[in-house]
């Protein structure tokens, strides 16, 4: 068995969690979240966590479980709606939230994982997001100047990601829009743990189609099951069936 594969989520997290650590977690809303690893993070009991991800789960799902267990001190996210506990703890000052524009958050994580300490973006210039940050002008192709804000790269003690399939070397393939923040978060963890729906042998994934190379994945589990809760089930009526007579 590959040295990266662990029997379950609890053993994959054993010995590497600690109070005050920074955890990144993939997913957009509840799509593509590492749902088994999040439960194990809750059960680890690690406290005073700084959690980085696009969202912090929503009521009763995802990272909400860790939040409801009083383990989170600070959040970096772009959107935290549909989460009553987070709302009340933020308004009471128990939890700090640093709001990041979604693209800035994605790029901060990408940069952190790629060894880039900071970068400039036009996003947020002239808004609260730029307060206290370095700003400077850069030229456009037509010679005019635009203002940019310096944003810093982000890294984590532990990154938790969800992919569709992995091989035993930790090469990952994501499925549809469940990819979202997972590829960048996989690169930005000092230890990255991936959970997948299926682990296959090397050679069974097309090397041309690997989304996250195994170098970024230190630990790997096959999730025993997936709930994949849908936040906003939206459908359209089927066209009326044709009568067959």
């Amino acid at each position: 068995m590959s040295r990266k594969i662990y029997p379950d989520a609890a053993s994959a997290l054993a010995g590497i969690t600690f109070d005050g650590m920074t955890v990144m977690s993939g997913g957009f809303g509840l799509s593509g979240i590492p749902e088994n690893l999040i439960v194990a993070l809750r059960d680890s009991g690690a406290k005073n966590l700084t959690v980085i991800g696009n969202n912090v789960g929503c009521d009763h799902h995802g990272m909400w479980l860790v939040l409801a267990n009083n383990q989170i001190k600070k959040v970096l996210a772009s959107y935290v709606g549909e989460n009553k506990i987070l709302e009340s703890r933020y308004m009471s000052g128990e939890i700090e939230i640093e709001f990041n524009p979604q693209g800035t958050l994605a790029e901060r994580i990408r940069a952190g994982g790629a060894g880039i300490p900071a970068f400039y973006t036009r996003t947020g210039y002239g808004t609260r997001v730029a307060e206290g940050k370095e700003t400077r002008q850069f030229p456009n192709p037509d010679g005019t100047l635009d203002w940019y804000v310096m944003e810093t790269g982000l890294v984590a003690d532990i990154s938790l990601v969800k992919a569709w399939k992995a091989d035993t070397e930790g090469n990952l393939v994501y499925r549809k829009t469940a990819r979202n923040f997972n590829p960048m978060i996989a690169t930005a963890g000092r230890i990255t743990i991936a959970e997948v729906e299926e682990i296959v042998q090397p050679g069974e994934l097309d090397p041309n189609q690997i989304h996250t190379p195994g170098i970024f994945v230190q630990r790997l589990i096959k999730g025993p099951s997936y709930v994949k809760h849908i936040e906003r089930l939206t459908t359209r009526p089927r066209p009326a069936a044709q009568e067959n007579n």
Partner: peptide, 13 residues
């Protein structure tokens, strides 16, 4: 309560 800007700041910029 602030829900967050999501991608709006990036889109308009």
């Amino acid at each position: 309560m602030i829900k967050g800007m999501g991608g709006a700041m990036d889109l308009v910029a």
